[in-house]
Amino acid sequence: MLSSDHIPLLRPAFELGKGKKLFQDNERDILKTVFWQQDTTQSSLVERTRIPQQTMSRLVKSLIGRNVLKNGEQIVGNRGKPAYILEFNGQFAYCIGVSVLLDAISIAILDFSGKVIASSLKPLQDMSIKTVLHESERLADKLITEHSLSADRLLGMGVGISGYFTSTDGKMNTHHKLEDWALVDISKLFSDYFKLPTWVVNDATAAAAGEGMAGVGRNYKNFVYLFISAAFGGGLISNGDILHGTHGNAGELGDMIPPKLYIHPNLEILKRILLKNGVEIDSIYNLQNTFDINWPGVEEWTYKVQDALDFVATACSAILDSQALIIGGHIPRELAEKLIPKIEIYAQFRRGTKRPLPEIVPSSVKQQPVAVGAATLPIRAICL
């Protein structure tokens, strides 16, 4: 049992109790536009949000005065009048993301603009609730101290964990290696321990959210994230927002692949193939730092998983008509780049052309993708 007298090391910056809002609806419309459309000026905000000019002037002045927004580059506006590109003020607040992995935790800290300040991975032999909460707090406090972050600017916390939601009550059926976390309210566990507003998604959805805010996914309004890690899954981004589905399980791409027909494209299979060829790796979560594309066994793995990736890519393209498929998770970028030219998306050829197909690109969030994505959850929930 967790101690009821635990005093958290971290403190929330803002009182966000039940019914309280940090930003009103009009302010959120402004923030969402400024965040996703990076050439935004006050005058263009009026056109894009339909908020009257006088009201807009007052709201923008207030947001700048509260250090939420700041004036960026000066440009020449209509009729030669100077104007400023509006930007998020990264120093206004920061968020913490926690990734509960199968044999480790990772932590990431993002500033208010979505920039990664710090991230770290810590292997653990004990993945019990008590140990994970305690070690997450210690690691987060260490990063905050190292980067001299203000203790009173913490917006909230996000958590990514392997599993699927069983209903709308926040409980998850977690991976069998995370038995202690199964069918408990994970959001409540973290929020009670840290006394912070907390949001929880599965690991693949978290990684997709992070890619959409801090990675190459920011170039696309709609994309599918192919999460290649200990298992295979995915996350969906629609019009910049996370597509959760009814129970929070949208993007379970692994369930699309019949295991008797296809080999799942995951890194545990790669690990076994490498070991068979005399290459031993300590953890798939550190693979990004040690991977060699010329290792014996890499070619065998890419050949074995190609059919499954063709199937998933074709289904995602046909059903969702996304702009991009982003290959990420804990797969090394070099390996993702090796896979991409091999993936074939099937489409009808009619009148000399196919329907528009998505780009296939590697993720650009290389370190701690789940924790980075989890750290975006408070910003998405409160501001966008």
Rank of each mutant, 00 (worst) to 15 (best):
G65R: 02
F349C: 06
S317I: 02
N67G: 06
M213Q: 10
Q306S: 13
K338G: 00
G17N: 07
A104P: 13
Q54P: 00
T49Y: 08
L267S: 02
T131I: 14
T205Q: 13
Q38G: 12
I284C: 01
L309I: 03
R333H: 09
A214I: 01
A214L: 03
G170D: 06
A324R: 04
L189W: 02
N277Y: 08
S136K: 04
I117Y: 02
R79N: 13
L320H: 06
E337R: 06
T174I: 05
A318L: 14
S322D: 06
M213R: 12
K122G: 01
N286Q: 14
L63F: 06
L121D: 14
L226G: 00
I257K: 05
E146Y: 11
A207S: 12
G245P: 07
N222K: 05
C95G: 10
G297T: 07
L178V: 07
N239C: 06
T131M: 13
K342W: 07
L155I: 07
T145G: 13
Q288P: 00
R28W: 01
R272T: 14
Q24N: 14
G328P: 02
N277Q: 10
L320G: 01
M1C: 04
K195V: 12
F349L: 13
V46R: 03
L270C: 05
I382V: 14
G217T: 01
E47C: 08
E179G: 15
F223E: 00
T49W: 05
A381D: 07
P259F: 11
I144S: 07
H6A: 10
I273Q: 10
S128R: 04
T246F: 15
I326R: 03
F35C: 01
I382G: 00
E252D: 14
K115G: 11
S62K: 15
Y262A: 02
P369L: 02
V312E: 08
S43M: 11
L357R: 04
T55A: 12
L102C: 07
D185E: 10
V184Q: 06
G329N: 05
G240C: 08
V298K: 01
E268N: 15
M1I: 04
A151W: 12
W295C: 05
E27N: 01
G352D: 10
T174W: 06
L10I: 08
E280W: 03
T198P: 02
P332H: 13
L101W: 01
T40C: 11
S57G: 11
N277W: 04
P378W: 00
G72I: 07
D5T: 11
T145A: 15
K18W: 10
I242E: 00
A104F: 10
F23R: 09
A118G: 01
K18A: 12
L45M: 04
L22Y: 09
W199R: 07
L139V: 05
L16W: 02
